[in-house]
Simulated scan of single mutants.
Amino acid sequence: MDFNLEEGKHLYNECSTLILPALSIGNVGQLAVDLLIASSKADRVGYLDDPNVLPCVGNDAYAPAPQGDLALPLEAYESPSSALTFIQQRSPVVKGMMVEFAKNLADFAVASGKKHIVILSSLDFGRWQTVDMSSGLQIYYLSNTNVDGSDDKCEKLGWKKMKEYDPNQKLWKYLNTLAEGNANQDDIASLEDDLGEEDYYPSLPFAAMFSCFKAKGLKVTCLLCYCSEGDNIPDAFHLAEAACNLVGLTPDTFKGIWPIQ
C-alpha cells in the first residue's frame, strides 16, 4: 500500500485517532464516515493505493456543486481541530484478499503514528438473536482493551459488547494467526467447507481489520449496528454519533447535516 500526499498537504502528528469503515450490509460504516468528514470539515490530505482494492473513480463527494475533483477508492482526510484522521473506502476489496488489505492498513496506521483505531461497520439484522428496540437503535462494540473484547468506557457509554466474539473460536483464532504472520492465507481454504453459523462474524471485513490492527499493538474499537438494506441514513447518524461519543466530541455539529445529495 502506497500513501500519496496531495500537493501542499501534510499529516498532523496530533491526529492520532483514525476512524474508518469496514464495508458491510447497507454501507452504514461508509455513510457514517462521510457524515463525520463533512461535518468536521476535514481536509483531504492524500490517498492510498492498494492492489487489493478494486479501482473506481467519481466526482466530488462533499462539495454542494461538483468542482471536478476526483473521488478515489481510498482517501485520507484530517481534522486537526478534532485530532482525527479519517480513511474513506469507496470500493470493495478483491475477493479473498481482505486479510492482506487489513495488514496493509495496519502498516499504514503504525507508520503514520496512529494510536487508536475506530472501525465503523454494520451487521445483518436478520442474524440478530435478541431483538430489543425498547431503547432505540443499539450500538454494539468490540475492543482489544481486554482479552474478552470488553471495554469499561464502552460499557459506561451504554453499549453492549458483541457477545458472539470468542477469541478461542476457530476462525477468530485463525484470523489472529494470519494477522501475526504465522500462517499462509491460502490455508483458509481448508476451513471454508466446515464453516458454521458461529463463523459469520469473524468472516466479515471488520473482524480481519480488528485482528490486524490488534496484531500491531494498536488500540482498536469496533462500533457496530444491526441494519437491513434500504434507507440507512438513521443508522449512519446513530453510528456517527457513537463515534463522536467515543472520542469525546459533541455530535451536535452534524445534526441536520447530510453530505450525500
Rank of each mutant, 00 (worst) to 15 (best):
M209P: 00
A207M: 13
P205H: 11
L224F: 07
S228D: 08
D193Y: 03
A207F: 11
Y200M: 01
L218G: 02
K219F: 00
E192D: 10
D194Q: 14
K214M: 01
S211Q: 09
D187P: 04
D193M: 09
P205M: 13
F206P: 00
Y226I: 03
C222A: 13
Y201V: 05
L191S: 00
A189M: 04
D194H: 14
L195Y: 07
D187R: 04
E229D: 08
G196T: 14
E197N: 10
L191K: 05
C227S: 12
C222N: 13
K216M: 14
S211A: 15
T221P: 03
L204G: 02
E197G: 12
L204W: 08
L218F: 07
L191A: 05
C225K: 11
K214A: 14
L223Y: 06
F206L: 08
G196W: 01
Y201L: 11
L224W: 04
C227V: 13
Y201S: 00
S211N: 08
F206Y: 09
D194R: 14
C225S: 10
S211M: 07
A189T: 14
C227A: 12
K216P: 11
F213Q: 00
G230K: 11
A207R: 07
A215S: 10
D187G: 14
L204K: 13
V220R: 02
G217Q: 03
K214Q: 15
A207N: 07
D194F: 15
S203V: 00
E198C: 04
Y226P: 00
A189C: 13
A207Y: 09
Y226S: 01
F206I: 03
D199Q: 11
C222D: 12
S228C: 04
L218Q: 01
D187H: 08
C222K: 10
E192F: 12
P202Y: 06
D199C: 12
L223C: 05
P205S: 13
L218C: 09
S211R: 04
G217S: 07
C222P: 09
C222V: 15
A215H: 02
E192L: 14
E198H: 11
A207H: 06
L204D: 03
P202M: 03
E192P: 03
F206K: 02
D199E: 13
L191C: 05
A189W: 06
S228Y: 07
D199H: 02
D187S: 10
P205C: 04
M209L: 13
